[in-house]
Amino acid sequence: MTPAVKLEAASVRFTSERGSVTALENVGIEIPPGGFWSLLGPSGCGKSTLLRLVADLVAPTHGTVAVLGGPPATARVNRELGFVFQDPTLLPWRSALENVRLPLEVGPQKRERSAQWTPEGLLRLVGLAGREDALPHELSGGMRQRVAIARALVSEPRILLMDEPFGALDEITRDTLNEELLRIWKQTGTTILFVTHSIPEAVFLSERVLVLATNPGRVREVVDCGLPYPRPLSVRETPEFIQIAAHLRALLQTC
């Protein structure tokens, strides 16, 4: 089976007048379709750069990036990629529903692919039924991020890239959205790459955690979480969970 994402000896170097910074060096990973991987690491380890590499927002300086067996640009144009930023990045003049519709209105592939995930249905899926006409400033931070998730899913992407999507939310909202994300992942079968700073979040959500080290950004270790799904929030109190979290914490200290 073609891997959803495959990086081979991929490096990214940013050059400016002040010199060059190696954001990622010699990264080789292979993420199977339908997988849920988290990217964990200290600030400046290139987590976001790796995500942007897959999203075709950054090009590799060396090495290759393949998304669904082809170049990332093809996947982007074919609407195989959904991106959720740390800020919801909603257009403030559009209602929740109009924001979710945006991906269907722009780009070369405008048409809706199936009736399975309508914008209305997606807002229901993320728990925002009845708030379709609300403007972003009328919604809470958590609700805005739900709208952003619905927007990322509307073109039925095979890969969902999430860059610290819940980083700015309070813990209770974050817990709720974590559970919902797992439910959405199971329902859609999308491959998810999830950048986070939080060890418990990474362990709770992912099948695998990719630990990155800094200076230069590189893969430190791929940790298998191995906890069975569905995972209730209480899984975080089990010895297995605590053991994996402790292992990750120890790893991060050496990054």
Binding site: F83, F85, L91
Partner: peptide, 20 residues
């Protein structure tokens, strides 16, 4: 970030202009 979003959506220059 909205510009990055439009890029991920492969929006054309005209679409970025009118919609953003």
């Amino acid at each position: 970030q909205s510009l990055e979003l439009m890029r991920v959506l492969s929006a054309s220059r005209a679409e970025v202009f009118w919609k953003l």
